[in-house]
């Protein structure tokens, strides 16, 4: 078992013919993801990589294929429209990799999501992967190995760091999700914590946060009230100065809100196992699981 995606997930790629879209679609195909169709406006009725049919719109693609998830690589200025197109087409899972979507656009996307059943991951994220089954995103596939830990993160390479440790420590992963580094994202940690709690294969969850906002605090309240499985937390940005955006649009301490120390304090209080530095994430997981 795993959450959200597995070897039977049929995936659409929006922006399949672009530079990033085509490069990573090939990598996902190599990993074994079932990419059934792509969408690029005015490139309909062509084939990507001599195998994947391309359509002008999702509506056209849906006539020919069952679609469970979409991976969005559409450039920032047009991405919101593509996401809303996916919402209106009732695609159950929307994974948006694109970085740099204006916040005002994301507010409209959130409105669309609130009136639908679709679940969105991202934007500005590495995507989602269920080890050895399905990769929808830009993460390096080879570091993942089927196992028992769920991983959630606001970051990219820092997630790979954690996954690499989990794999090397023999723990392995069920599903790993980068929820996105922007101030407004499709779904918070809590959406996925709930799913991991109900997934029989997942024995513990690693939650990697960073400065900015209060998503980690809210997640830890949820952990305290609703989770039996241990959650291991790490927060990046203890040394980050206030008022500066640390690479990710969402990683900013503003008006005294969003500091690492405040997050760590709340997480610890709510029973999250804290990894003091990123090198001890796997070690902390083992301790939490009494291994």
């Amino acid at each position: 078992m795993s959450i959200l995606v597995n070897k039977n997930t049929n995936v659409l790629v929006q922006g399949i013919t672009g530079k990033e879209g085509s490069f990573h679609t090939l990598k996902c195909l190599e990993y074994g993801t079932n990419i059934v169709a792509g969408v690029t406006p005015f490139k309909g009725k062509t084939l990507f990589n001599n195998s994947v049919p391309v359509y002008n719109t999702i509506a056209e693609a849906k006539k020919e294929h069952g679609i469970d998830a979409t991976m969005v690589f559409v450039p920032a200025g047009f991405a919101a429209s593509s996401i809303i197109e996916a919402v209106e087409a009732e695609i159950p899972l929307i994974v948006c990799i694109t970085e740099g979507i204006p916040v005002m656009d994301m507010l409209s996307v959130k409105d669309a999501l609130n009136c639908s059943e679709s679940i969105m991951i991202g934007p500005n994220c590495p995507g989602i992967i269920t080890a050895d089954e399905c990769k929808i995103g830009i993460m390096p596939g080879f570091i993942h190995k089927k196992g028992k830990i769920g991983v959630l993160s606001r970051s990219g390479t820092l997630t790979y760091e954690a996954v690499n440790q989990l794999t090397k420590a023999g723990l392995g992963e069920t599903t790993c999700i980068g929820i996105g580094g922007d101030p407004i994202i499709g779904s918070p940690f809590i959406t996925f914590l709930k799913m991991f709690e109900n997934d029989s294969e997942t024995k513990a969850v690693v939650m990697i946060g960073e400065i900015g906002g209060t998503a980690e605090e809210e997640a830890s309240e949820f952990v305290k009230k609703n989770m039996k499985k241990p959650v291991i937390g790490f927060i990046a940005g203890k040394t980050a100065p206030a008022g500066k955006r640390m690479g990710h649009a969402g990683a900013i301490i503003s008006g005294g809100v969003g500091t690492a120390s405040e997050k760590l304090k709340t997480m610890e209080k709510n029973g999250v196992f804290i990894a003091d530095n990123p090198s001890v994430i796997a070690e902390t997981v083992k301790k939490a699981l009494n291994l």
């Binding site: 993160s153 606001r154 970051s155 990219g156 390479t157 820092l158 997630t159 760091e161 580094g181 990697i208 960073e210 400065i211 790490f234 990046a236 940005g237 203890k238 040394t239 980050a240 640390m246 690479g247 990710h248 990683a251 690492a260 003091d276 530095n277 990123p278 090198s279």
Partner: peptide, 26 residues
């Protein structure tokens, strides 16, 4: 460092070992 999250985590780890980062650089 490559990646914003890893860059922040690297800065934090340097501080943990008694030095201070001169910058954030992704």
């Amino acid at each position: 460092v490559n990646g914003a999250g890893l860059a922040m985590a690297t800065m934090d780890t340097i501080k943990e070992f008694g030095a201070m980062p001169a910058n954030f650089l992704d």
